[in-house]
Amino acid sequence: RPMNAFMVWAKDERKRLAQQNPDLHNAVLSKMLGKAWKELNAAEKRPFVEEAERLRVQHLRDHPNYK
């Protein structure tokens, strides 16, 4: 299953946050990521939305029978 825009963004952002906050549990990091994503405007999200769409199209090509 291809990543959605949030997952594309969160992949690198989670690493950055975890390095800055090594003692935080994953659940806390996830909440921080969700809050930060909601605060991004459409222009800030656009590159990740476009990458998610590219991944979706590639997934359809690679797995035409996937449901």
Rank of each mutant, 00 (worst) to 15 (best):
A10G: 00
R1W: 04
F48Y: 05
F6A: 02
D23A: 06
P2G: 10
D62C: 09
K11D: 05
A43R: 10
V49L: 08
F48T: 01
A18H: 09
F48L: 02
K35T: 07
E51G: 01
F6H: 00
D62R: 10
E13S: 01
A10I: 04
R16S: 03
L40R: 02
H25C: 15
S30E: 15
E53C: 07
N26K: 14
W37F: 01
E51N: 00
H59F: 10
A27Q: 09
Q20P: 00
P47Y: 04
A52R: 00
K15L: 08
H63M: 11
V8C: 11
F6S: 02
R14Y: 04
A10M: 04
R54Y: 04
K38I: 05
N21Y: 15
P47G: 07
R61L: 10
E13V: 00
K67L: 15
R61V: 13
V8W: 01
R61I: 13
N41F: 02
K38V: 06
K11R: 11
H59V: 10
Q19Y: 07
A42M: 09
E51F: 06
K31Y: 05
K45Y: 01
A36W: 01
P2M: 13
Q58L: 10
K38F: 06
K45F: 09
A52H: 01
E13P: 02
V57L: 14
P22V: 03
A18W: 08
V8Q: 01
N65L: 11
P2S: 11
L40Q: 02
R16M: 10
Q58M: 13
M3F: 05
E44K: 09
H25S: 15
L33N: 00
H25A: 12
L40M: 14
L33P: 03
K31A: 08
E53N: 10
V49S: 04
K45V: 02
R46E: 12
P47D: 08
M3K: 04
L29P: 03
K38N: 11
R56Q: 09
H25P: 15
H25V: 05
K67D: 15
M32Y: 03
Y66R: 15
M32L: 09
N21V: 01
K67R: 14
N4D: 10
H63E: 14
R56Y: 07
F6G: 02
Q58I: 09
N65F: 04
L60R: 14
A27V: 11
K45Q: 08
N21F: 14
N41T: 15
V8P: 00
H25W: 00
K11L: 06
Q20T: 12
N41P: 15
M32D: 07
S30V: 10
A42P: 13
F6M: 05
K35W: 00
E39N: 02
E51W: 00
V57C: 15
H25M: 02
N65K: 13
V57P: 06
D12I: 03
K38H: 05
M7R: 11
D23W: 00
S30Y: 09
R61K: 14
W9Q: 00
W37V: 01
N26W: 11
Q19A: 15
V28T: 14
W37N: 13
A10C: 04
K67N: 12
Q58C: 03
E44G: 05
K67T: 14
E51D: 01
P64I: 12
N26R: 11
P22R: 03
R61E: 14
Y66A: 14
Q20F: 02
R54F: 04
E50G: 00
V57I: 07
K45S: 01
Q19E: 14
F48G: 03
K38E: 11
E51A: 11
N41R: 07
Y66S: 15
K11E: 09
E50L: 09
N41K: 13
A5K: 00
L40S: 04
W37E: 02
Q20L: 11
L55A: 07
A5I: 01
A52I: 00
A36Q: 13
D12W: 06
A27L: 09
A10T: 01
A18F: 14
D62G: 13
A27E: 15
E39L: 13
N26F: 09
L33S: 05
R56K: 08
M7H: 15
N21M: 11
A42T: 12
N4H: 03
P47L: 03
L24E: 05
A43I: 04
L33Y: 01
N65D: 12
A10D: 06
Q19L: 12
F6Q: 04
G34Q: 15
E51P: 03
W9L: 00
N65T: 13
L60F: 09
R61W: 07
D62K: 12
N41W: 00
N21I: 01
H25Q: 13
L24G: 02
R14S: 06
K31M: 10
H25N: 15
K15S: 00
V49I: 11
L29T: 06
N4G: 08
L55V: 07
L29V: 13
M3V: 11
V8R: 02
R46I: 07
K35L: 06
R46K: 03
S30L: 07
A27M: 08
E53P: 00
P22M: 02
V8L: 15
K31L: 05
R61F: 06
R1C: 05
N4V: 01
N65V: 12
K38L: 10
A5W: 00
E13Y: 15
R16H: 03
P22L: 01
V57F: 08
K11W: 02
E51M: 10
A5F: 06
K67H: 07
E51L: 08
E39F: 09
V49H: 12
E39G: 08
N26Y: 07
L40C: 05
A18T: 06
N41E: 10
H63R: 14
P64L: 10
K31Q: 12
R14G: 07
M7I: 09
K38Y: 06
K11A: 09
H59T: 12
R16L: 06
A10H: 00
D23L: 01
M3G: 09
H59S: 13
A5M: 02
Y66M: 13
N4L: 03
V28L: 08
E53K: 11
A10E: 09
R56S: 08
R16D: 00
M3Q: 07
A10K: 00
M32V: 08
L17M: 15
R46C: 09
R46T: 05
K45R: 12
Q20M: 12
R54A: 05
H59C: 14
W9V: 01
N65G: 14
K15C: 02
F48P: 03
L17D: 00
P64N: 09
L40D: 01
V49Y: 14
A27G: 09
W9H: 01
E39Q: 11
V49F: 12
A42G: 10
L55P: 00
E13D: 09
A5G: 07
L17Q: 02
N65R: 13
V49D: 04
M32I: 13
Q19G: 10
N4Q: 00
K45I: 03
F6P: 03
D12Q: 11
R54H: 06
V8Y: 11
A52L: 00
M3S: 04
Q58D: 09
S30Q: 15
A27W: 07
A27T: 11
E44Q: 09
R56L: 05
A42F: 04
R56P: 02
L55Q: 10
E13T: 04
N4R: 00
V57A: 12
A18S: 11
F48C: 03
W37P: 01
N4S: 10
R16W: 00
E13A: 13
H63K: 14
Q19R: 13
R54M: 02
A42W: 10
D62M: 10
F48H: 02
L60T: 08
N4E: 10
L24C: 10
W9S: 01
N26S: 14
H63A: 13
Q58G: 09
N65W: 07
E39C: 06
W9T: 01
F48A: 03
P64K: 13
A5Q: 00
Q20N: 09
E13R: 06
A36N: 12
A42R: 07
G34E: 14
R46L: 11
E50Q: 06
Q19D: 11
G34F: 15
W37Y: 04
K35M: 10
F48R: 02
E13I: 04
K35N: 13
D23C: 15
V49P: 00
A18M: 11
E44V: 05
A36G: 06
R14H: 04
N26L: 03
K11V: 07
R61T: 13
A36T: 07
L33D: 08
F48D: 03
D23T: 07
E39M: 09
V49E: 14
R14A: 07
A10L: 02
P2K: 15
K11Q: 11
L60Y: 12
V57W: 09
V28P: 06
A5N: 04
E39Y: 12
D23S: 06
K31T: 06
R46S: 09
R16E: 02
D62A: 14
L29D: 07
E50K: 10
R54S: 05
Q20R: 10
A52S: 08
A42S: 12
R16C: 04
Q20S: 10
L24H: 10
N65I: 08
K11T: 06
Q58E: 11
